[in-house]
Design a protein around this nucleic acid. Sequence first.
RNA 1: GCCGGGGUAGUCUAGGGGCUAGGCAGCGGACUGCAGAUCCGCUUUACGUGAGUUCGAAUCUCACCCCCGGCUCCA
Length: 490
Amino acid sequence: MQVYNTLGKKKEEFTPLKEGEVGMYVCGPTVYDLSHLGHARTYIAFDMIVRYLRVRGYKVCYVVNITDIDDKIIARARELGEAPQALAKRFEAEFFADMDTLGMLRADHYPKVSGHMPEIIKIIERLLEKGCAYRAGGDVYFSVDLAVGYGRLSGQSAEEMLAGARVEVNPLKRNQLDFALWKGAKGGEPSWESPWGPGRPGWHVECSAMGVKYLGEQFDIHGGALDLIFPHHENEIQQSEGATGKGPFVRYWLHTGFLLVKGEKMSKSLGNFITIKDVLKGHDPEALRLFFLSVHYRSPIDFEYQNLQNAEKNLERLYNALNFVDRIEKSTDEIKGIKDILESHKNKFYSAMDDDFNTSKALSHVYELTGEIFKIGPKAKADDLLSLRDFLGEVGYIFGILQREPQIKGLEEALRALAISLGIELAAATDYRGAIEAVIAARETLRRGKEYAAADRIRQELMGMGVILEDSKDGPVWRLKRAPRGASSS
RNA sequence: GCCGGGGUAGUCUAGGGGCUAGGCAGCGGACUGCAGAUCCGCUUUACGUGAGUUCGAAUCUCACCCCCGGCUCCA
């Protein structure tokens, strides 16, 4: 399996530190506002990666941090006249609600800055002891000049960065690229006690402290969107390796590309952001997942409703294939070559996924296979069907799609009412399947008598209760409508 | 200024020295009481421009044009 490592800027064979186990840390949200589509893109990408690694047999420990202490939180809280911690808690809850709606696997840990002050302080102390950091005023700064290999992740030297940088001059810093490990408290801000007086941690140090705590001083994968490469991840490497004396802190750095809106970067500061909730008001979360995963995770993706609708259509086709496989009469007639077709597409799918999680290419093989599935016709060997189903199930798991459940709540009662209105007597033991069959049989009688208006009305009513009826060449076929989870769908 | 990613048929997205892309849209057929689903065919040997290397370039090299991003906070 190959992954693209930002550190080194090339694809590398993936070999975890401990065989069969993967430690993975992804930079989570700063909870000061609703999560937007950019967050969704990034977290869906890493969700897919975790799922795929697990399918590949790795035991993954997945950590996503929540930044709940931060300048922006304080600023927003001030604007709204709310306590910073209360605001952070509120948006944290919103974040989890969005992630659940998107069908995200829960991470194994969601560490928060506010819960890890001792660990953070300890790292800063170690950095001070080793001479990597210095105190100035009530602050503590990391000294970039003393660091080894600064700029190795972002691929730029310190001088170059400084040359074009738009950094505000801070007289307390020895080098303007130095960054705060600890910020002394200013009036009215939340603060914690420390050996350097009351204050709060700088932005980058939390990830070093929490990464080390949950995954060890060195671990396998660290992810985030590419805007975090500099300065956040660059600084994280320096802090972590400086404090532990071990390197590399992280073996593989994975970064997702940006989400663009009409060709421009979407960001909170530009104010052109679309929240996850906005989009999910009228669209299926699985379609959004498929939309994101139909582009490679490192490429920029331009969000357009038109393209999301496209994903919706693709999703429907996949569901149709799934329904088709379910519906096929299990026969012992062997369809020539189907086993080979499945194997070959399956292999192509996995080799695409093994190549830096190329979901786009992998999906193209799935679409090809769905075409083959439809061509199989109504008969296939039971074994072949099961393996087709299994494969679609694997695809569904990896992409987090095809998880819609048929709705059977209240169905039986509704069917009984319909049956009565049609003058059909149902035995007490008849379940919804039996009821559907009975109604359909009655409708067939009407159709044969060319009473199409009545027959169409029954089909309409069944549709209303979530039973889709289609008249095929081989007679009527029914299936249950699968309801998108989460918000209402279009 | 420095560092990246791109420009692929109407459109979106992969690929990346000879293997002719996947989806969607459109059009025309098949099936069909209607609806739905599906199939077949067409649009369709496409790769920003100019040069070079090569038996052969969309792919490699060079130059140029255009788009987007990073070097401040960001996912």
